[in-house]
Amino acid sequence: MALPQTIPFLGWSWDDLIFLVLAGLMLGGAVMVVIGRNIIRSGLFMILSFAALAGFYVLLGAPIVAAAQVLIYIGAISVLILFAIMLTQSKAGPSRLVFHHQAWAGAIAAIGLASLLVLVVLSTDWPAQVGQGTAAGTTAVAQLLFSEYVLAFEVVSVLLLAAVIGGVFLAKREESLDPGERAGDEPTLGRNQSPPVQADGRPSASTPRQVSGSARSTTAISERP
């Protein structure tokens, strides 16, 4: 399929168009993540933003990074976050106040930071730009990974193992250690006693779901890299 070299009427190159569209998607998605009232929508917009970012990686000639972006961020982390969202949504629903009371200060800081960064970027004389020709070939990346960066690779694997163990340990439900967990619990209940079956059954129903949810998600991540 033959496309014109430039976009009709505008005279832009297609790459430019793609860039602008992706930039709009990414920044728009990010803004929606940050200001969205509904936390689940925030998560979905984050996926959109990540996807646009993957497009940038392709545009920048790093397909392996783009693939990893899709697999890890969209496939694992976003899903993990969505699970967490579902686990932590209280019955009260989304909070009335999305923002912290210091949001105005955060906004000032963020704007200041942005203008500072833009200023720095614009005022810096970057090294000669070679252009799009230098794509990071997958083979070259793989060779580099297992030769020069092999130590870092191993360290990262150890880090991920530690993260798996830490995640399991943190999210693991400690039996009857936190009295807030069991509604209507008598405070005189012994620590080592197994919790009695509640009449409404709510704690006992929620418990396996939480444990399995977090455990499953952590294992799902750990398999990934």
Partner: peptide, 13 residues
């Protein structure tokens, strides 16, 4: 993108 993230971190509850 970074500053949007920063703002979100500072402002969201």
């Amino acid at each position: 993108l970074f500053t949007i993230g920063t703002f979100g971190f500072l402002a969201r509850r």
